[in-house]
Each structure stands twice: as C-alpha cells, then as structure tokens.
Computed example of a mutant assay.
Amino acid sequence: MTFHQHDETFAGLPVTEFPAESVAGPVAWRVSYDEEDTSEEAVSPGFRAKFETFLSAHGATTESLVIGPWGYAAFDHAPLTQLQEAAPRLPGLRSLFLGDITFDECEISWMKVGDVSPLITSFPLLETLQVRGGEQFGFAPVASDSLRRLVVQSGGLPRSFTAAVLGSTFPQLTELELWLGTPDYGGDTTVADLSPLLGGTLFPGLRRLGLRNAEIADELAAAIAHAPIVARLESLDLSMGVLSDRGAHALLAGQPLTHLRELHLAHHYLSEETAAAVVAALPGTRVDVSEPQGADEDDRYVAVAE
C-alpha cells in the first residue's frame, strides 16, 4: 500500500482545496503547492505565498486545516516556522494535518519535515494533530491540555520520536496512533521502548490505541496480550503490519479482549484458520481481518515503508 489519493475528510469535515469558488458549511481547508521552486535549504516561496493568501481569506474562521505538498517535499522543507508564526491568525484552529501527500508527489520516506512538536504548543486549542513524514522527522516532549488525538504516520518511526511522545503530558488524549514501520527506513522503535505506554500509567484518558504498520507486529501482540493498558481500551489497531499466526495466537492466549469494541488487523499474514479463530473468539467485537497477504515468511512487508 502507498498513498494513492488525498484524504477526502479530516476531523469529521469534508476537505476542500483552497481556493474554492463557493463553500457550503464548515470544511477542512487544504492548502498545497505541488511545484518545486527552491533549493534544499528553504521553504518553497510558492507555498509561502499561497498560504499567506489563505490566511488573509480564511485564517480567522478556520478550525480544521490540511497541509498538502509544500513544494517538492524531498527538497523543500516543511513550513513549520510559517505555521507557528501564523498561530495568531488562526485563533480557532482545532485540527491540523501536516503532510497529506501522495506517493507520486513524494515518497513518505523522502519527506523533509523536522520537529513537529511546536505545532502543539503554538495552537492552544488544538485537539487533533496528524503528521506524516520520513526524513528529519522529529518530536520533543511537550504538554497540552487540549490535545485529544495524535496520529503519526511514517514508514519508519525513530525510537527518539517515540520516546518524546511518551515523555509528553497530554491529560486529555483519547487516541494515539503510531506507525512504527521498518528499520530499513529508520524505524528502530522496540517493544521495550513502548513499555511505559503499555504499562498503562501514561495518558489516563486513552481509549483508542493504534500501533500500526509495524514490522514487529508479532512482538507487539505478545506484549499487548499482558499489557495493563488494554483493560481500558475501546479500540486496538495492529493493522498494516506483518502480524502472523504467532502473534495472533499470543494475543488470544492473553488477557480477555471481549471488552473491545474494535480490533483492527487488516493487512496481515494470518492463515485463514487463524483469522477465523480471532473473529470467533470475539463475537461482540468488530474485528477487521481484511487484506490477507499470504503466509510466506520470506515475503512479508509492512503496508507503508517507502
């Protein structure tokens, strides 16, 4: 799987490309500039100008914002500073998605992003932050009393990024989604690195947990089978990784999962028998075992890497 199309909705709103002749009702504005027009050390002047025009037209009323290509993301750096400086002109921003970029616009592993954590502190009302990136992708521990949803999409999530997220203070966080990826693209986060999260002491409001796109999916499943955090979850997502029968059997042999409303395992390497056994074991849970990938141990890949 790669990103073939842009998101059509974000934060419950239809995504509308800026500029638009007419808009009916609230939308998530999408600002993009899909041209390379700068050197490797700067933000695209074309994006900078377009975003300035957007701010003048809609900044005061925007609650949800999607940033698409900011030039060619492999060369043009993400407009992090421009976004932070624009905070006073986006006083009502509650949802931000940085990096709605398809594979033909830039592969995820090539995207130059930087440290995205200041986006959280720059917007005091921010409830949702979704970020996508690969190269120079960073995070530092921060605190927010408003953040409820954090989604980090990567083909390889560095352990330093993971540690900084887990070192942050988000008392209102209800949903956390981390795409762990593969070591081939910098994804060196381990199960041990996630132990503070799985231990259940972090983020007391967390109800939806996604540890997706993981090459270590079997190891994660074995750890989750006995992880204290599971008892308070409503939704568990281990999709897009290389989960095999070994991981699924460990999951079923552990603590009860019948309290879950949802268990997402799509894009997996389970046998038909094991997939059926997982569904049968959780009759009151919506279990997604779609997108079987086969069972060849030498041909297993996460859904999104490059």
Rank of each mutant, 00 (worst) to 15 (best):
residue 247 G to L: 02
residue 262 E to G: 05
residue 251 L to N: 03
residue 216 I to S: 06
residue 257 L to M: 11
residue 216 I to P: 00
residue 207 R to I: 10
residue 222 A to P: 01
residue 229 I to M: 13
residue 263 L to V: 02
residue 225 A to S: 13
residue 256 P to L: 03
residue 233 L to S: 11
residue 223 A to L: 03
residue 247 G to K: 02
residue 242 V to T: 14
residue 232 R to H: 12
residue 208 R to W: 07
residue 221 A to H: 01
residue 256 P to V: 03
residue 244 S to L: 01
residue 222 A to W: 04
residue 235 S to C: 11
residue 258 T to L: 05
residue 214 A to C: 05
residue 244 S to P: 01
residue 211 L to K: 14
residue 240 M to G: 01
residue 245 D to C: 06
residue 264 H to V: 13
residue 230 V to L: 15
residue 265 L to A: 08
residue 259 H to K: 08
residue 231 A to Q: 15
residue 250 A to G: 03
residue 219 E to K: 02
residue 262 E to H: 12
residue 262 E to Q: 15
residue 265 L to Y: 01
residue 262 E to K: 15
residue 261 R to H: 14
residue 255 Q to T: 12
residue 227 A to R: 10
residue 223 A to V: 00
residue 251 L to S: 05
residue 238 L to P: 10
residue 250 A to D: 12
residue 242 V to Y: 00
residue 249 H to W: 06
residue 204 P to T: 09
residue 234 E to A: 12
residue 207 R to L: 08
residue 238 L to A: 09
residue 265 L to V: 02
residue 239 S to C: 10
residue 242 V to E: 00
residue 211 L to C: 14
residue 251 L to D: 03
residue 245 D to H: 05
residue 207 R to Q: 15
residue 264 H to C: 09
residue 254 G to W: 04
residue 222 A to H: 02
residue 246 R to N: 03
residue 221 A to G: 02
residue 255 Q to S: 15
residue 215 E to S: 03
residue 261 R to F: 04
residue 256 P to M: 09
residue 253 A to Q: 13
residue 255 Q to G: 07
residue 228 P to F: 13
residue 254 G to K: 05
residue 229 I to R: 10
residue 210 G to F: 11
residue 256 P to C: 08
residue 210 G to Y: 12
residue 233 L to F: 14
residue 226 H to G: 06
residue 222 A to Y: 03
residue 214 A to S: 14
residue 245 D to I: 07
residue 216 I to L: 05
residue 263 L to H: 04
residue 234 E to K: 13
residue 218 D to V: 00
residue 226 H to Q: 15
residue 264 H to W: 11
residue 254 G to V: 08
residue 243 L to T: 01
residue 263 L to Y: 06
residue 224 I to V: 15
residue 224 I to C: 05
residue 262 E to M: 10
residue 259 H to Q: 15
residue 210 G to A: 12
residue 228 P to W: 12
residue 229 I to C: 15
